[in-house]
Amino acid sequence: MRQIGVVMQDNVVIQVDNVNKRFKTYETKGRGIVASLFRKQYFKKALTNVSFSVKGGELAALLGRNGSGKSTMIKILMGILFPDSGRARVLGMDPWKDRIKLASQIGVVLGAHSQLYWNLPAIDTFEFMRHIHHIPESMFRKRLKYFVKALNLEKVYKRQARQLSLGEQMKCNFVASVLHAPRIVFLDEPTIGVDLPSKLALRKVILEMQSQGTTFVLTTHIVEDIMIAQRVIILDKGRKMFDGKREELEKLFGDKRHVDIFFTPGSRINFSRFGRILNSENGFVRLEIEKEGIKSKKFMELLGNDDILDYKITDPGMNYVLSKLFKSYDRRKANKEMD
């Protein structure tokens, strides 16, 4: 593989410094036919002072709700969008200026825009990629064989692309985008319409490629998808909210456990003494307590109480952390606007 890009300090392959991007959009006032003729133009900030860096061989997830700016960020790194201010460097290159040179070093899987030629079988797109990236024939055969087997595409890749299911298209799109063994792979919402077995197969392939040194940047709004990432960057409304290891994110609000308790209705246990009450109905309560609190004598006694019929202790997990994170952010923002 030809290596063009300069390896930056500390093996950093992606460096983003204070990137800003805003879009011109239009808003219609009112709802009538006449009103639709008059549009108010305004600027929407897609990214505000975003900075981060990714090291070679990392698997980083860019997570955010819809419209958080994660696709915009990826497109800036691909050289498709031009940042209003700030600096982005991929493999030491300016993605906007060196787009063509960079394109042979990176692979991009866009969930929303397939690389496949609709009228042609996927194999024709693969051949197209072989020519366009100058992949040696023997290497091409070897990689294709691997991907076809790993992603279960034997019966798929010779059929016309438009006849494939969404998940099959996505898998073929993935293969087309990584056949040239890129150093960095950007995955923008790669699991749209992919069923569970395929998702797991994709995950396995990604991890295998990573173990051979490929860097991955994945954008998604699906929490499950980030479970393979070691590093998580969260964007919201164009701002970076979190940047760190996935484990750190999971423990961001402390190491908590949720305890669902079913008890005899009418019993007078004061649950708030043991932890925060998240949910309470007649005969049911959900408590949030510190992980250590579970083994405390006080808590053991509670569970031993005759009125307690059943209980279940769970790790609240990433979904809970994220919803809490976004909620706190929204609240802070609402407070700011009130002032």
């Binding site: 691909m78 050289g79 929303a112």
Partner: peptide, 10 residues
Amino acid sequence: GTIASSLVRP
């Protein structure tokens, strides 16, 4: 936005 799929090619 399909321009993206053309611009990922070298």
